[in-house]
Design a protein around this nucleic acid. Sequence first.
DNA 1: TAGATTGTTAATCGATTAACAATC
DNA 2: TAGATTGTTAATCGATTAACAATC
Lengths: 221, 221
Amino acid sequence: MNASDRLSPLPLPTIRRYPAYLRLIRERMAAGDEEISSAALAAALGIDPVLARKDIALMGIPGRPRWGYPARELVEAIRHALGWDNATDAALIGCGSLGHALVGYDGFAEQHLSIVVAFDANPELQGQTVHGVKVRPMTEIDRLVRRLRIRLGILTVPDAAAQECAEALVAAGVKGIWNFTSVQISVPDDVIVQSVDLAQSLAVLSHKIANMQQSTRPFPM
Amino acid sequence: MNASDRLSPLPLPTIRRYPAYLRLIRERMAAGDEEISSAALAAALGIDPVLARKDIALMGIPGRPRWGYPARELVEAIRHALGWDNATDAALIGCGSLGHALVGYDGFAEQHLSIVVAFDANPELQGQTVHGVKVRPMTEIDRLVRRLRIRLGILTVPDAAAQECAEALVAAGVKGIWNFTSVQISVPDDVIVQSVDLAQSLAVLSHKIANMQQSTRPFPM
DNA sequence: TAGATTGTTAATCGATTAACAATC
DNA sequence: TAGATTGTTAATCGATTAACAATC
């Protein structure tokens, strides 16, 4: 086992930039490039090149002055750091329109993520197939998640059901929950919750728009 | 015009916490509370109470020792800071499953956000009604967005169409774009783009799971 | 009054940026 | 060689935490 296998707890901002690097590098590789410079990465993300170099330094991949970094190695290093080098099976709870959208989303291939089971409380949906995934009743969460040894749960249920469904997932052995509800669910310490909070995102956007509107005026009235 | 109307550029982390405060305060108000303490807010968000007090201090709402902060005033101050005190009309581009989910999402009421027009390139969808909103052809973006004076665009098109659609929105006078594609779209300086990047969110989750797995072992092998 | 809670100032921490050396 | 690019160390900046005073 070599040094890069010792997964270090990377800074969160760095982790958040990794997927964007990955996307750009793969584009460049598709265009035939085998090396990529920190300047190219930085320009695409709108950040300082030295920040890109620091992010790459954390992967332990050395670059060549005058050439840049080896594209293929970067891709592998990023995937490894994010745990995207091995396939991950996920269970989706809640087959409403958002659940549908996620099951059908083909962008997860890059992340080696596949939704292998889906659950819904609505009997009319149960038994139906959504993008090749059969919808099961909630009562089967424990049995199926356990049997398939699923470690990742995707929560797309109505807010009112969020905490309850999270608990079912945890009880079934899930280690991470990708939470698309607007509830702050509570789980044991050894389970990670990552929330996609639309209100939070919209808050940043609305505030910036409101602020911009004002700063265009020379003086506030 | 009083002091709180001078919108100050709040720290981004503060803005991101505001919607969660808002949600909790409204829950408490529904339960009959008229005051709320920084400790209660902090507990719900898993942060330090002093941080909540700082966030509130930025709104200019004073609290009463022994009592806490006036719930109603907090709600109004947060809404004002986020620009959620006035109704916002939005245009949605791309009526795929994610677009459907967003048009149908009833959580936007709190933010006074309503999607008033939707566009799609697919002629089969055009003319259909999604949750009461009629789907229009892309060619009408300019005319309708202009006429309705819409300042917010929601981008839920396939990646390949993202930049082009963003440009159409900007040309029609939109001031902010809520970007659900995984493309880093480029726009003029006076337009704000806020992206909901699923890959970024998943990256954080996967990395934490991978890291946790390891830290549970006493020594790395 | 005593005690709970707010409010403020200083210290710490982490991430970014600046400056510059090293290298192909 | 000269020049572009990587790599590293120090300075800066912003946000959080700590310590403690103020107040109802």
